[in-house]
Write a protein that binds this DNA or RNA. Structure first.
Length: 888
RNA sequence: GCCGGAGUGGCGGAAUGGCAGACGCAGAGGACUCAAAAUCCUCCGAGGUCACACUCGUGUGGGUUCGAAUCCCACCUCCGGCACCA
């Protein structure tokens, strides 16, 4: 414990607070006292603060420090406001790094991971985060992944799990398949290496069953950043339109020949999806995706057979991400077959082309070159007619003109007209607005059995198989007699073997005979176990629910405990998970709700997407710090490759955890980038030292005031004598109010800290300038407020000064006081005087002054009179207590 | 190309219709010291002035308003996301 008598002998200026000793002592205290244990029976006051759990790399980095500092400030503040806070932590512990380490260091991924977790937990504790470690969830432990497997089986029962062969994304470097969401610009989200297309049989979760809900419920998420919601909307990609059936003409058909209805009705129709039924009269050709399964059958035995198959081959070989890039030139070939437009009986040729995707809609399109830019480019290249059927609303000639004139206009088009307009050349629909015709034509088709209104999504099912060891084993057995059989619930968990060999080639799981050889759950005959493991995003899709009931051995969590804490009131994490994790977690929550496990539609009520931590970096070419064209230092995300990372542990050792936390929260708003700046860190350290010295300076008088045992007044009723004291009381309550609003309502930690700093400055000048005249009761209350408002950001120093100053109880148990509104009422206020909107003067007036009095006072002001120069103002605007504007 | 966000001192940033630049950093001057560090005090948008006064100033141009960093329109720049989804 610090000996204060020693301090008083040294010059105050020499004192720097002993953060290392103070911080470790409080951390130990918190652990021993289990200060952060989650309250039981939370009821209506529950508040669930959650930060995205980390991958246990073994080293805490600055990005982690930022998320957890944000969450911790909130958690501590909410506890002070009487909330029953759940603030848990765990580890997203499956994944490739541990497996790679296993290959490199010949250590089992489990040992490696557990060691990293121990290291990271120690580092977490050094930051002083108020986490309930008793609820820790570690996804790589059987007591967690047991429930991944259980949920897999439950989802299977509901038809939400299936296995199918599909063209999938294969990451060569990670040696595994990836889900659609996990491919970014043709590259693996994790290792950034290019992704290949393979055809494999894989396990999928039927997330598309929930597409409509996942989209619609985004509207409920009022406290999510607009950008994240937009990204999810785009990813789900809902389009309304119609599936339209075109009659296929026989192989022998050639243009000019009569269409034999009896013959065509024998052939299977060609189905296309369109969002533009209004352009149906403008169809001049159709296009299939090259890999469309019907293409082979359509050309079989025709003269074009070889040519078409050669093109299909070529298209299949081309890199898929190059082929489907938006700027790729459109190309394809005619397949020699024709179809009939159901609306007008037109015969149109069928092509295959690189720009049509098999995975979307029906894998075939109707092409309307006049009104779709892609179709237009293709038609131009292959000399296919362009037929305008929608005229710009202001183009009277096109609307009223003859067919010939329109044909000429069509031929002259330089680009597709994609805007809404007026229907032309469309028979009975002519003259109607195209937006209205969309529905009318779809209805017309539906009535005659030529089509059906439908909704398409871009969202695909979630591919969850991974050909890797370090993940949750998929609880499936392949039996030669019974086929694909789910493992019995009572046999869970299917554990990862301890004796796998990590050679670096192939999935080690497949090489462990004891694992692979299984008994069929149905017939008890010999069977083979599935050796694929689950995508690690499965683990993180429901961990927030496990925290609600972490020790449950019979269920992933009980309904009672889930309902007691869910939804997460405030979720905090990086924007990089805007689609991946946040979409999967929303999907899981809805599935769990439908399984009757929890009563909650959306997992995360409020979302705070925190910005990256950046730093200056050395330009490898010049060997100097990278600068922009103006010579200003450039900042980039802290990373290994740029060598610009700052180790949080190093900062803790040099400045202490409180300084690190304070700087991280002060330097920038939470959702923006944080530019690392050593000088800024220094500034925060100086501030905490000033608080320390101020508290030591006040300690004798504070102890004296506290020793009277009187109830510490909030200063208001005291009716302070002098101006400085009244101002001090005002500042104290104003700070209480500002900090509460900034943290509690706006989550603006930077301005909350600025308010605390201002308050510290004010208290310091009050006690130094007033000297003996300073009211000890007022300073005692002010110090109390200073420590309370500092506590969420810098809990160690605040706790220590609370104790040292002689305040009773633990700071952890204190309530954050409500400000007293009457303390914020001032008898005199400064009013700004404007003439024609320009500030000319400022005057002090009674806060109660009426509009008329303010007007009089303004007109009486010398400077105002000088500016008006005798003119009479035409109009006077009075904003009570703030300003008077004289217009004249 | 489409969608989303942002442009404010030397720097990070405050102010969401009413005093632009809170708070912090950097910088300048001073006090303490033999000196330095630490600490404390003062100044710190630009022009202008001995000092005031005054003028200009929130990416650019227009608009609404008594009054605009803030609201509306157009444009420019930067950041992020998506990208032939029919």
């Amino acid at each position: 414990m610090t000996d204060n008598s020693q301090n008083s002998q040294a010059s105050l200026a020499e004192i720097h607070y002993p953060f290392a000793e103070v911080e470790s002592r409080w951390q130990q205290h918190w652990e021993e006292e289990q200060t952060f244990a989650t309250p039981v029976a939370p009821g209506a006051d529950k508040y669930y603060v959650l930060e995205m759990f980390p991958y246990p790399s073994g080293r805490l980095h600055m990005g982690h420090c930022r998320v957890y500092s944000i969450g911790d400030a909130l958690a501590r503040f909410l506890r002070m406001n009487g909330k029953k806070v759940l603030h848990p932590m765990g580890f997203d512990a499956f994944g490739l790094p541990a497996e790679n380490a296993a290959i490199l260091h010949k250590v089992h991924p489990s040992q490696w991971t557990e060691r990293c977790i121990d290291d990271m937990k120690a580092q977490f504790k050094m930051m002083g985060f108020s986490l309930d470690w008793d609820r820790e969830a570690v996804t790589c432990r059987p007591d967690y992944y047991h429930w991944n497997q259980w949920l897999f089986l439950k989802m299977m029962e509901r038809g939400l799990v299936y296995k199918k062969a599909a063209a999938i994304n294969w990451c060569v470097s990670c040696n595994t398949v990836l889900a659609n969401e996990q491919v970014e610009q043709g590259a693996c989200w994790r290792c950034k290496n290019p992704v290949e297309v393979k055809n494999l049989e894989q396990w999928f979760f039927k997330i598309t069953d929930y597409a409509e809900q996942l989209l619609a419920d985004l509207d409920k998420l009022n406290d999510w950043p607009e950008s994240v919601k937009t990204m999810q909307r785009n990813w789900i990609g809902r389009s309304e339109g119609a599936v339209v059936r075109f009659k296929l003409l026989p192989k022998e058909f050639a243009p000019g020949m009569p269409v034999d209805d009896a013959q065509t009705s024998q052939l299977p129709d060609v189905e296309i999806f369109t969002t533009r039924p209004d352009t149906l009269f403008g169809v001049t050709f159709m296009v299939f995706a090259p890999e469309h399964p019907r293409v082979t059958e359509l050309v079989e035995g025709t003269p074009r057979d070889a040519e078409v198959k050669a093109y299909v081959q070529k298209a299949k070989q081309e890199d898929r991400f190059l082929r489907t890039a938006a700027d790729r030139e459109k190309e394809g070939c005619f397949i020699g077959r024709y179809a009939v437009n159901p609306l007008n009986g037109d015969v149109v040729p069928i092509y295959i082309a690189n720009f049509v995707l098999m995975e979307y809609g029906t894998g075939a399109i109707m092409a309307v070159p006049a009104h779709d830019q892609r179709d237009f480019e293709f038609a131009t290249k292959y000399d296919i007619p362009v037929r305008m059927v929608i005229a710009p609303p202001d183009d009277a000639d096109a609307i009223a003109g003859s067919d010939e004139a329109r044909a000429q206009a069509s031929a002259a088009l330089k680009a597709a007209y994609v805007e809404p307009g007026v229907m032309v050349g469309s028979g009975a629909f002519n003259g109607r607005p195209s937006e209205e015709a969309k529905g009318a034509i779809a209805e017309y088709l539906e009535e005659r059995g030529f089509g059906k209104r439908t909704i398409q999504f871009k969202l695909r099912d979630w591919l969850i198989s991974r050909q890797r060891f370090w993940g949750t084993p998929i609880p499936i057995v392949y039996c030669p007699a019974c086929g694909t059989v789910p493992v019995a619930e009572s046999d869970l968990p299917i554990r990862l073997p301890e004796n796998a060999v990590f050679s670096g080639s192939g999935n080690p799981l497949a090489a462990v005979d004891e694992f692979v050889n299984a008994k069929c759950p149905k017939c008890a005959g010999p069977a083979r176990r599935e050796t694929d493991t689950m995508d690690t995003f499965v683990d993180s899709s429901w961990y927030f629910l496990r925290y609600c009931d972490p020790h449950n051995t019979s269920l992933p969590f009980s309904r009672e405990n889930g309902d007691a804490w869910m939804a997460v009131d405030q979720y905090i994490g990086g924007i990089e998970h805007a689609i991946l994790h946040l979409l999967y977690a929303r999907f899981f929550t809805k599935v769990l709700r439908d399984l009757g496990l929890v009563d909650c539609d959306e997992p995360f009520e409020r979302l705070l997407a925190q910005g990256m931590v950046t730093n200056t970096f050395v330009d490898k070419a010049t060997g100097q710090n990278a600068v922009d064209e103006n010579g200003l230092l450039k900042y980039a995300k802290m990373s290994k490759s740029l060598g610009n990372g700052v180790d949080p542990i190093d900062i803790i050792k040099r400045y202490g955890a409180d300084t690190a936390r304070l700087f991280i929260l002060f330097a920038s708003p939470a959702e923006k980038e944080l530019e690392w700046n050593e000088n800024g860190v220094d500034g925060c350290s100086r501030f905490l030292n000033r608080v320390w010295r101020l508290a030591l300076m006040l300690e004798p008088q504070v102890r004296k005031v506290l020793s009277t045992g009187e109830n510490l007044s909030d200063g208001v009723s005291a009716g302070a004598a002098d101006e400085a004291t009244r101002e001090m009381i005002f500042m104290t309550h104003r700070t209480l109010q500002r900090v509460a609003v900034e943290i509690g309502e706006r989550h603006h930690f930077n301005t909350a800290i600025a308010a605390v700093m201002e308050f510290q400055n004010a208290l310091y000048s009050y006690v130094t300038k007033s000297g003996e005249a300073a009211d000890p009761k007022v300073t005692t209350f002010a110090l109390r407020v200073l420590l309370l408002s500092l506590f969420p950001f810098a809990p160690h120093i605040a706790s220590e000064l609370w104790r040292v100053s002689g305040f009773t109880g633990r700071l952890d148990d204190q309530r954050y006081p409500a400000h007293n509104p009457s303390a914020l009422v001032r008898s005199e206020v400064e009013v700004v005087l404007q003439v024609n909107g320009k500030i000319r003067s400022k005057i002090m007036v009674s806060a109660e002054a009426t509009d008329e009095q303010l007007r009089e006072a303004a007109l009486a002001d010398e400077k105002v009179q000088a500016t008006l120069a005798g003119r009479e103002p035409k109009k006077v605007i009075v904003v009570k207590g703030r300003l008077v504007n004289l217009v004249g």
